[in-house]
Amino acid sequence: MKSIKEEFFTDQEIVKKIKEGDKDAFCFIVDRYQKGLINFIFHMIGHYEESLELCQEVFLKVYSNIDLYDRNYKFSTWIYKIASNLTIDHLRKSNPRTDSLDELNEDDEKKIDVKSEELDPIEKLEKKIVGKEIIDAIRSLDPHSRELIILRHIHFRSYEEIAKISNLPLGTIKNRIFRARKELVKKLQKVEMKQNRGLKRIDKMEMKK
């Protein structure tokens, strides 16, 4: 079981144990990466339950392919690469149920209610403590741009690591991230303009009263 000592093993040391047949050691990998991966997948596919299922798949794949792991890569790079491949694949195959938070509000109100304890952060998003505009904007990007923005600005990965995860040259990655940011700014400005127009309309209605 978990001992203090094991908490301080490097990823590489844990991987070595797993390769030697110590299945239990894998729980340290899960410990370290579950939160990051679930968040990554959730923002990619926009569906909580599905992101949990997909994350399960990612860990199973990581485990069953651990012999293929190349020590020249950072372990985190490898694990995100697997997550990225499975997620993009998932989006390609399924008609993604990327519910916008608006739809969540209307259709899944009960569902959210029942699970509100578990889904606390989603609830926070729902209640607009955090701008839901930004989350909707990320979801409206094409999957590859979405992935780059999530890795860079929600997961704080370096450009170098993102380049390795995506198998693309550093320059290309930077350009694509810069372009995606511009696209997001434009999308947010559009939303803001719409909201302002709405407010003006309400003002006018108030005045007529």
């Binding site: 299945k23 239990d24 894998f26 729980c27 899960v30 410990d31 579950q34 939160k35 679930i38 968040n39 959730f42 923002h43 909580y48 949990l52 994350c55 399960q56 860990f59 199973l60 485990y63 578990e118 889904l119 606390d120 952060p121 989603i122 926070k124 998003l125 955090v130 930004i134 989350i135 990320i138 923005i149 600005h153 929600i154 704080f156 997001l184």
Partner: peptide, 21 residues
Amino acid sequence: LETIPLINVPPSFKDAVMKNI
């Protein structure tokens, strides 16, 4: 972007992964 909060992991998640493995 950088203030989007992280979603929590359900406590049962790790056990489910380990069971499958």
